[in-house]
Design a protein around this nucleic acid. Structure first.
Lengths: 326, 326
DNA sequence: CGCGTTTACGTCGTTCGTAACGATA
DNA sequence: TATCGTTACGAACGACGTAAACGCG
């Protein structure tokens, strides 16, 4: 049993039992994986996969047991490597972020640009996902960091670090009748309009939907999208009134669009970074957090990650437009 | 980084930073370990041990971090191997027991003899320890199974499985004035005597000592030993009245010694097996438990070990002299 | 016939043990 | 001088990649 064998085994399982595809992912040849898999099976004394003919059909029950343990072994090995890489100030590395489109498009660029200055060889991977999926990816260890927002409790699935608070804005074309309102519209007024907002509005637990519900109003959601740019586009096209995160509002948008504050009944959201527990993060991951939320302290972050000290996070400030680096 | 490198690293740390000794333990040559250690250090980018001249002086702080993670990796690898060995009904293996002398000398032989019949190639290791040390060895993963007794709560440090209940007996030479008592002596009567008992009696939390204390009596302990045979020998020599576990009483002892029940105020003890958590035990470990405590169920044991089901152990029966196998 | 796995084979790298050397108390 | 770690070297093993064969849809 070697670490390579376990790595290949897990890769095959993760590639949907396709050895060829798994071989590509681990940068090795297909016969190599095939051989190592057979050797591992020989050593253990039972099959890890059910074969039909020559192709892998399923994981055996025993294989599933081994798979779990192999994952923890490989995760610990990665932890050792990450620890060592931090220790020797290694600047190369990979950072996988899962986040919503708005964060990726409007919040992260400034922070990531700054990060790239300190770590020019860093390879960044953005995984855009819906609100619900991000935490699962963290728990399964497929991502280093999730950026999610919540109007209520801190998200679970990892160590949730509050970064900043943000509000929604109401966005209408300059010619729209609400454009001259010069104040936050009421929920009742919004209920009269066709709304264009995020996909997450469709979920019953959405804080937007709940705000309407408490006043016995039902919002008329004309269009939803994950993508704040799409929302703005459709607002421009006159499909309805946009409700989106304030971060998504660019200065140039104000040329033809008018932004109003959202009704007070729609609660503020907090953006959280969710870090995988029991895992050594590379220094640049923490640097990214510090870039996003200057109120955080690196030492506190490390301590909280190691579980030695129950985190007591500083209150997250309101979002503000980041200073252009350089 | 390979499993071998991690294994060598841990071996060196466990051998007190003596590479030669570590090499013997892992059945390899000293230069081999030396080389692998250097390679691991090269790959990680920092030293795992502090050198003074050519000899290892201490573990570096980084080394300590890696050591912990290496241990979990190796433990999981062992778990995989144990799982596989069980799966293919492997009869070879090793079983390390930590227990008191009385258990090892009077309780275990029958059970181990039965076990050896089913697993002739099993290599058994008995580690005799004082009451307090056993649990630490389990927690550190240096033993597969601990056998300890307690008059009160179940011991911690692992999964405690109640095996059987036992009482102490009072042992006097046939010529002793208590020999004709034909009933349990009172604590007051015992307080008049010189006592010969287990070393654990010296500990203030000893149930024997506490029984005396509740009647405001102080026992006169003339001699303590871990070894029940020693206690019997000194009782024969007239040093005093023996108080020991009923299991330690052999039929032939009654030829020249008289055993009386212990005072009712001295509580019954329960013998527990303490199993390491988060660890796959070989089947023969469970078989040993079943041999010691027939009321147990193998399936329940496995479930409890996997943590899927909160154990609800059957009440432990009283100790009885085991039937001679064969 | 394409896709994917296994088998065969040659090469290269690595590990391991023996032996010699160096340092230390 | 005995003990312990490092360096040197040669042999053997193992891993890996290329190429070809095999099954299956």
């Amino acid at each position: 049993m070697t670490l390579t064998q376990l790595r290949y085994f897990v890769a095959i399982a993760d590639a949907g039992l396709n050895i060829t595809q798994a071989a590509e992912r681990v940068h090795a040849t297909q016969p190599g994986l095939s051989k190592q898999l057979t050797q591992l099976e020989d050593e253990l004394g039972f099959l890890l996969f059910v074969r039909r003919g020559r192709s892998l059909e399923a994981i055996t029950p025993e294989g599933r047991q081994i798979l779990e343990r192999a994952r923890t072994i490989l995760a610990e090995a990665d932890n050792i490597r990450a620890f060592a890489a931090n220790r020797r100030r290694e600047t190369r590395g990979s950072l996988t972020l899962v986040t919503t489109h708005t964060q990726a498009r409007y919040v992260l660029p400034a922070a990531l640009a700054r990060l790239k200055q300190d770590y020019p060889e860093l390879s960044l991977h953005l995984k855009p996902v819906g609100e619900g999926e991000a935490l699962g990816l963290i728990e399964r260890g497929e991502a280093d960091l999730a950026l999610v927002s919540s109007a209520g409790d801190a998200p679970g699935g990892g160590l949730a670090v509050p970064l900043f608070r943000w509000s929604r804005v109401v966005l209408v074309p300059a010619a729209h009748r609400l454009a001259t309102l010069a104040r936050a519209p009421s929920l009742a007024e919004l209920a009269e309009e066709n709304l264009v907002s995020y996909e997450s509005t469709n979920r019953p637990e959405s804080s937007l939907r709940q705000a309407f519900a408490t006043e016995n109003l039902a919002p008329r959601v004309a269009l939803t999208a994950r993508d704040a740019d799409l929302i703005k586009t459709y607002v421009r096209a006159g499909l309805g009134v946009g409700i989106l995160a304030e971060m998504a509002l660019l200065p140039e948008d104000r040329q033809d669009l008018v932004a109003l504050p959202a009704p007070g009944a729609i609660p503020e959201c907090t953006a959280y970074a969710v870090l995988p527990r029991e895992r050594v993060l590379r220094d640049y991951s923490l640097d990214l957090l510090l870039a996003l939320a200057p109120q955080l302290d690196r030492i506190d972050l490390r301590r909280a990650l190691e579980g030695v000290q129950e985190p007591n996070w500083p209150t997250a400030p309101r979002w503000e437009i980041p200073a252009v680096p350089g």
